[in-house]
């Protein structure tokens, strides 16, 4: 079974600096650049947390750029 699909598993809700969320199986080390926003908890609770707190799917750097046009140019490297 895919580790993201275990109905009985323990999970985290992770968030990165773009404000993007990721479900994450608790038995796997948390990847660099991600913080625990919720958990460990059951899967549904983590997903509920994500649905509640993630409200804008645009990456944060894009939101910043749209709000402050002098800001850096996201996606251009």
């Amino acid at each position: 079974m895919n580790p993201f699909e275990d109905p009985d598993g323990q999970y985290y809700a992770l968030v990165n600096d773009e404000g993007q969320y990721s479900l994450w199986p608790a038995f796997v080390d948390i990847p660099a650049g991600w913080l625990v926003s919720h958990g460990p908890d059951v899967r549904d609770a983590c997903l509920a947390h994500i649905s509640e707190y993630w409200t804008d799917m645009r990456p944060k750097s894009l939101v910043d750029a749209m709000e402050n046009r002098d800001h850096s140019d996201p996606g251009r490297s």
Partner: peptide, 13 residues
């Protein structure tokens, strides 16, 4: 679809 996105677009180790 935030919860669905968080299940499929996941943190990359």
């Amino acid at each position: 679809q935030f919860a669905l996105t968080a299940q499929r677009f996941v943190a990359c180790p």
